[in-house]
Amino acid sequence: MLCSFVIPVFNEAESLNELYRQVVQNALLSKWCNEPIKYEIIFVNDGSSDDSVEIIHKLHDNDDNVHLISFRKNFGKSAALQAGFRNVSGGIVITMDSDLQDDPAEIPNMISKLEEGYDLVSGWKFNRQDPAEKKLPSKLFNAVTSYMSGIKLHDFDCCFKAYRREVIDAIDVYGELHRYLPVLAYRQGFSNITEIKVNHKKRQFGHSKYGFRRYFHGLFDAITTNFLLKYCDSPMYFFGKWGMIFGALGLLICVWMSVLHFMGQAIGSRPALFLGVLFILVGFQLFSTGIIGEMMIDSHARESYNENRVKEKF
């Protein structure tokens, strides 16, 4: 079995040689069905400005199982993971950060867990070695994501994950959705998702590349992911429901205004009349958006047949 490691890199030159050594060491200790694991390591350079690329070139010169995908500028972790996913060759895919906080010694444990039949194994940084200002927002983020998605994981944001190949073939990662890969996999029908506690080490070199804005992005992405999980294949269920609610409220208000008009009261300047007309228009627009969304999905379904959705075929 070939195991592909996808490792985004952004200005982590100091850790790369040691990371490579530990990954190879632990990959060679791993087995799949009692057979040795073969490996490939795909480093995705996300616009580094230090010596990361040069170091990866040297690693490749000494080991042709090491590969490099290099971006022209910093596009973010989601873009890096997507590029790696589209270039893997292995039946098992493991993602991890390049800062040595993810402990490669956990690799055999993750592969063993996959062998039990799981589609995705997520790392849980049970004893997280980060400052409190990172841990507390992360706990809130994970609690909200678990509640909204219905997936009972403690650490969605941990990059240290192991996947069966069919999982990463079925999902697309963009924006900041790398935090929600278990949710994206679940949406595609991969429900055998679990987590294991992993050792999390203190950062040895450099500093974190993520600022406070990641929490705002996380909030918006949580809303996006939850919407995709529930309504991507049936937008009319969302837009149609709210369209009918607003339309019905508007209709009731206008009927009430009409009754008052026939009773001889002046309604031309009453705010309720404008509110009723506004609700009807908003309801019509929402309902129309739902219909357009359904037409787009129907058209896309006719044009593209996604083999990755098929679990078994004779």
Rank of each mutant, 00 (worst) to 15 (best):
I94M: 04
I92G: 01
D99K: 09
M110R: 03
T95K: 03
L100D: 03
Y118W: 13
Q101P: 01
N109L: 01
D119K: 09
V121Y: 12
M110A: 04
A105H: 02
D103E: 11
D99L: 08
G117P: 02
S98W: 04
G117Y: 15
S112L: 05
A105W: 00
L120G: 07
A105Q: 01
L114W: 07
D103Q: 09
L120M: 10
D102N: 15
S112Q: 13
I111F: 09
I92R: 02
P104N: 11
P108Y: 13
D97N: 06
S122C: 15
P104F: 14
A105L: 00
V93E: 06
E116V: 11
D99Y: 12
W124V: 02
D119N: 15
N109T: 00
T95M: 02
I111Q: 00
I111V: 08
S98T: 01
N109M: 01
S122T: 05
I111H: 00
D102L: 05
T95F: 05
I107Q: 06
W124Y: 15
G123I: 12
P108L: 11
L120Q: 06
A105M: 00
P104S: 10
N109F: 02
I92H: 03
M110P: 04
S98L: 04
P108E: 04
D119L: 10
A105V: 01
D97Y: 11
V93G: 03
I107P: 13
I94C: 02
E116G: 08
E116Y: 13
E115V: 08
I107L: 10
M110Q: 14
P104I: 09
I107G: 07
Q101E: 14
G117H: 14
M96E: 07
L100G: 02
G117M: 09
Q101D: 03
E115T: 03
W124S: 07
E116H: 13
I107H: 12
D102I: 05
I94L: 11
